[in-house]
């Protein structure tokens, strides 16, 4: 089985690299998945005014810090992509791991936040608001974890100066995960 890349990958009829085209379609399919959850949440949220009292129990500070963390990790990955484009693999590697650090910080803050809320009795079964809260933030956290793992795998190649174009691909995915959080934060935490 020839391990060489098929000719198919070297063609670019659309003028865009195949990897980037694929990631754009991945982001397209993710938009409708998160869209499904958020549309359902917004429908219920607009129906029940009482939910703003329940939303008051969410830890807005943790949410805000997490927004800052994701925003900064978005900066790191785009700087990493910029470094990869200039073939500066050492800097690219550094920025990738800074982004992964950002992801871990996000997850640690979320872990503390959730354990605090659960200990106060706001579990996923408490009420429909909390069910949506944990489902939406949970699916988003899963995407953060998957993104961090893929970034780790890509960083191995980057250190060996291979597949530098993949930094941009994972960067696109990461920016999307950040955009989802940009909408999740006001929806879950702020709308009081």
């Amino acid at each position: 089985m020839s391990t060489a890349q098929p000719v198919a990958t070297r063609r670019s009829v659309t003028g865009m690299s195949t990897g980037k085209l694929a990631v754009m379609w991945v982001i397209g399919s993710e938009i409708v998945i998160f869209g499904g959850i958020l549309a359902s949440y917004i429908m219920f949220r607009l129906q029940h005014d009482s939910w703003s009292h329940e939303a008051a129990h969410t830890n807005t500070v943790a949410g805000a810090v997490n927004t800052f963390v994701l925003l900064t990790s978005s900066l790191f990955i785009v700087l990493g992509h910029n470094a990869a484009e200039n073939k500066d693999t050492k800097k690219a590697f550094k920025y990738i791991w800074l982004t992964i650090l950002g992801a871990l910080t996000f997850l640690v803050i979320k872990a503390f936040e959730w354990s605090g809320e659960i200990s106060h009795g706001f579990t996923i079964k408490k009420s429909l608001f909390w069910s949506f809260y944990y489902t939406a933030a949970g699916v988003h956290a899963a995407h953060v974890i998957v993104g961090a793992i893929i970034m780790g795998i890509i960083s191995l190649d980057v250190r060996k100066n291979k597949n530098l174009h993949r930094v941009e691909l994972i960067g696109l995915y990461w920016h999307f995960v950040d955009i989802v959080w940009i909408f999740l934060f006001p929806l879950l935490y702020i709308a009081k």
Partner: peptide, 24 residues
Amino acid sequence: MASVGPLIAGAIMLLFDQTMSIGF
């Protein structure tokens, strides 16, 4: 791809309803 997204969200919600008797 464009139509399966909401159903994946729905499947997650239904799975939570089935396993943890959430109330979606």
